[in-house]
């Protein structure tokens, strides 16, 4: 009796302690680096934070002010958003008809085309960036917003198509037949059956494309510089070319805040299946 009770207690404890422990570890795993990033961004330059102090001596907003006042970070934020927005719209327009064809029409070789569309995600990013950059330079688009948007769209279209093809495939044929049986023309079928049914996929695909474009470094770095600067390229100038930890922390947070906010707001829309579609079978 006693033994049974204690066994039950252990099981109950395990049932709640293990997930609790995992959540704590996860928060430490993600939260501690974030917290450190905040701390570093707020170090006062007059009281440097060095070994073996676990925490900075004094906090100030000096570096935030410095970055906001002395560099054109707000311009970079603006162009990041502008490029991401244009990329999302362009990717959507290009991906929609092709996804419909791949998802609904029984085309010969659809499997081959579906593999083909994933190529941009698999080929080496730096090699693609450098030689796509050469190609765009030949077209006179190097260092222009148009060039950067075109290059980002090359990465955005596969993401968008992956999710949209799955969404189109999962619309039951009976619904489409029912609509045409009741008198719907091709246009109405698209507007009233396909579109509402693929809308969640469309939202998920747009979010992925947007965030992906906000994060894209290689292409912007090669094609956009010196004129087009986005948050990641500014960040790289503090991290890769020289190492300025405090300023890099400020810029990192400026980059993370919109991305993670967007993710948190829209998490409801991103079902795990879309996640799998976008990432799983690249």
């Amino acid at each position: 009796m006693e033994k049974e009770f204690s066994a039950q207690l252990t099981r109950k404890l395990l049932r709640y302690l293990v997930p609790f422990a995992i959540i704590v570890i996860l928060i430490a795993w993600i939260g501690v680096p974030m917290a450190y990033c905040f701390l570093w961004s707020a170090v006062d330059p007059d009281y440097p934070w060095s070994y073996p102090d676990p925490l900075p001596q004094k906090l100030s907003l000096f570096h935030w002010r410095y970055i906001l006042e002395n560099t054109n970070i707000l311009g970079a934020v603006g162009s990041s958003f502008f490029i991401a927005g244009c990329t999302t719209i362009l990717s959507f327009l290009l991906a929609l008809p092709t996804s419909y064809a791949l998802g609904r029409r029984q085309l010969k070789g659809a499997g081959f085309f579906k593999t083909l569309m994933l190529l941009p995600l698999v080929l080496p990013g730096m090699a693609m960036a450098i030689f796509l950059g050469r190609m765009l330079m030949k077209m006179g688009l190097s260092g222009t917003y148009t060039g950067v948007i075109l290059a980002h769209t090359l990465m955005g279209v596969p993401y968008m198509m992956r999710i949209l093809v799955v969404s189109f495939e999962s619309v039951p044929q009976d619904l489409v037949d029912a609509a045409s049986n009741l008198g719907a023309t091709a246009f109405t079928r698209f507007a009233e059956v396909y579109f509402p049914m693929v809308l969640p996929g469309l939202v998920a695909g747009s979010i992925f494309t947007f965030i992906n474009s906000m994060e894209e470094f290689n292409l912007t770095f090669i094609i956009g510089l010196p004129t087009v600067k986005t948050i990641p390229t500014v960040l790289f100038s503090y991290l890769g070319e020289s190492f300025a930890r405090t300023r890099a922390s400020v810029v990192s947070l400026i980059l993370l805040i919109p991305n993670l906010t967007l993710l948190l707001i829209t998490e409801r829309f991103i079902k795990t299946e879309y996640m799998g579609a976008a990432l799983g079978k690249m």
Binding site: L93, L94, A95, L96, P97, T98, S99, Y100, A101, L102, R105, L107, F113, L116, M117, L119, P120, L123, M128, F131, L132, R134, M135, L150, A151, T153, L154, V157, P158, M161
Partner: peptide, 18 residues
């Protein structure tokens, strides 16, 4: 097949170019 052009055509044009 014509509908494949916007998405796949775009990808292939730039990939082939690069």
């Amino acid at each position: 097949y014509l509908l494949l052009l916007p998405g796949l055509g775009y990808i292939l044009f730039f990939l082939a170019g690069a």
